[in-house]
Every structure is written in C-alpha cells, then in structure tokens.
Amino acid sequence: MSWDYFIELFLGGLTRGSIYALIALGYTMVYGIIELINFAHGEIYMIGAFTALIIASVLSLFGMHQLVVLVLAVVLAVVYACAYGFTVEKIAYKPLRKAPRLSVLISAIGMSLFLQNYVLLAQTSDFLPFPKLIPDFEFWEPYSHIISSQELTIIATTVVVMILLTFLIKFTTIGKAMRATAQDKIMAALVGIDVNHIISITFIVGSATAAIGGVLIASHIGQINFFIGFIAGIKAFVAAVLGGIGSIPGAVLGSLVLGWTESFFTGYISSDYEDVFAFLFLVFILIFRPAGILGRSQTQKV
C-alpha cells in the first residue's frame, strides 16, 4: 500500500466525484424546485454523450480541426441535452403538477424507459467507441503520470461550472426567482414570477451540466452505450442525497465523498462489488441521516 497508490486513488476519486457532481446538480436543483426525483435525468446525460459522439464523428469525418470538433460537439451536446430536458418536463411532468406524487414518479420512470429504448432503437445496443475529444496538453506532460490531462480537464471544468452556477443562483434575477419558487410556488407566482418558466429553466440548467458531465466522462472512459445513464444516474442521486437533496453545495460535497469512498473501496477492498457498494451506501445514508450532510431535516407540514 504505497503512497503513490493512495494518491492515484485519491485523484481517481476526485475525478469520479466531479462527474457525479455535474449530474447530481440536476437532480438536486429539480428536487429543490418541484420535489421530484427526475428519473429521466440519467438519460439526459446519456443523450448528451450520444449527441457529442455523433456530432464529433461526423465532423471528424469531414476532416475538421480537432479543436473545432471539440467545441462544436460540446456545445451541441449541451444544446440538445437542454432541449431534451425541457421537452421531458413539458411532456411528462408539467401535466401532472397537481397529480399525486406516485403518478409523477411513475411518469418519470416511463420517460426514462422510453428515452433509453429510443436511443437503443435509433442507434445501437452495442458499446460505441467515443473519440478522444480532450487532447493531451503538452504543458502538462511532466505531471501526467500523476493525473492525466483528461482528469485535469474534468476537475477544472467541474470547478468552473460550480462557480458559474453559484453565481447564477446567488446573484442573478433568475437565480433569485428560482430560490423563491423553491421556497413557495404560490407566493412566487403571486409576486409575479412565472413559475412554469422557472421550472423549465431549472430543467435546462440541470440538463446542461449533465451533458457536460456526459461528454467528459465518455471522453475519459472511451466508450458509451444507451445504458450508461442508469448507473450514473443512480450514483449521482446517491451523491445528491448524501449531500442533502435540494442543496447545491451539498450535491458537490456528496459527490466527492461518494467518489472517494468508491475509489478507495475498489482500490483497497474489491472491485467486484463496486455498484453494490454505492447502493448499500445509499441505503445506510437514508436510514441514518436521510437529510444528508448539508441538508436540514424537514418537518412535514400538516
């Protein structure tokens, strides 16, 4: 158990955690605003990755410069993920605003099932090789044995996204409206906030970060299929719950904690039960601290 190995696992965990954070944000924001676990969120992430793959492949075949390919693939992946997030909300959740919770959940599961099979049928069930979009930076060469350029990019992107998001929520009018809607939808509507509009924006922002996460992880791992959204979605959800669902810093913290524990668990104990471990983790959090690390325990209104 050398020190190097520990560092490797630590950085691996940090990378994993960053990805989880990008996905977990979408869960936590949507939950914060309409108290719904958006089961289709993992699928949005998957669709983001697929769009990037398709766009990048096509552009590469046209012989475009790698940087152009990268930028266009990322931008279009984000645009499409946002469009899907927006549409999913309009079709599967908006008509059910006043319906019992169980109905909305079932609708969400249906949407997730639909999107997975939609990609499966329209594309393929096989794993597709994902082009290496993120280049190896030359200036990073001397340190790349510690952390690869890609991992560095993942971590840096996550940090930038978090900062932007914090800015959006803390300092902009939209952010203020989001916070108001999350607290009390009726009051928000009374003071002139278009609640449906804000909910749409929340879905769009969450989808955008998920798509960024999708592109980054796909480029890092090097292959994707229609099913990647399921496990990633559940894990990101675990992370969101761990941090305290509804809380944005909580989602980041939860993701990092999950990333590290997973990394150390698989590194030191066993890699066979990696996913089992994440689920067990979820069960234990929910039993012993359902409000999460940063969440406040809610008292149900009667």
Partner: peptide, 16 residues
C-alpha cells in the same frame, strides 16, 4: 423490439 419503448410510453400516457 419496440416493447420496452411502448411500455415507457404507456407509463407516461396512463399517468397523464
């Protein structure tokens, strides 16, 4: 082969 796709649609449509 469209079975699961249709199941997804059923879940959403029935709920709505």
């Amino acid at each position: 082969e469209y079975r699961m796709l249709v199941f997804g649609v059923i879940l959403v449509v029935m709920m709505i």
